[in-house]
């Protein structure tokens, strides 16, 4: 579990490359650091639901990213708020997979 205010990194993983998948983590935040705003609850893992497989409940977080860290367009302190499942997040400081 991650706590509100914690800095996390979105895993820099690309399962799309290896076969049919259904991913709810947008490409543009992968590998980037953000801040956990809050946990939104637990939801069945869409990556399994999409293939009618048994789906475990997974925590879903609202994570904030500074826009300037992603794109160079004007106003770098504007922000993005994105729902990301816990299994796509890692604590910052841990080695990348």
């Amino acid at each position: 579990m991650f706590l509100a205010g914690e800095t996390v990194r979105v895993k820099d993983q690309w399962p799309e490359a290896t076969g049919p998948v259904h991913i709810r983590t947008p490409w543009y935040v992968r590998g980037l650091e953000g801040e956990v705003v809050r946990c939104l609850g637990e939801f069945s893992n869409p990556e399994d639901l999409a293939f009618a497989r048994p789906a475990e409940k997974r925590p879903l977080y609202h994570v904030r990213f500074l826009k300037g860290a992603i794109w160079s367009e004007a106003k770098p302190d504007d922000e993005l708020l994105i729902e990301i499942f816990g299994h796509w997040l890692e604590p910052v400081g841990q080695e990348r997979p």
Binding site: T25, P46, E79, E83, I84
Partner: peptide
């Protein structure tokens, strides 16, 4: 005024 874009990616 800060712009906050909310990408509605999952269950909410």
């Amino acid at each position: 005024v800060k712009v906050r874009v909310v990408d509605s990616t999952a269950d909410y």
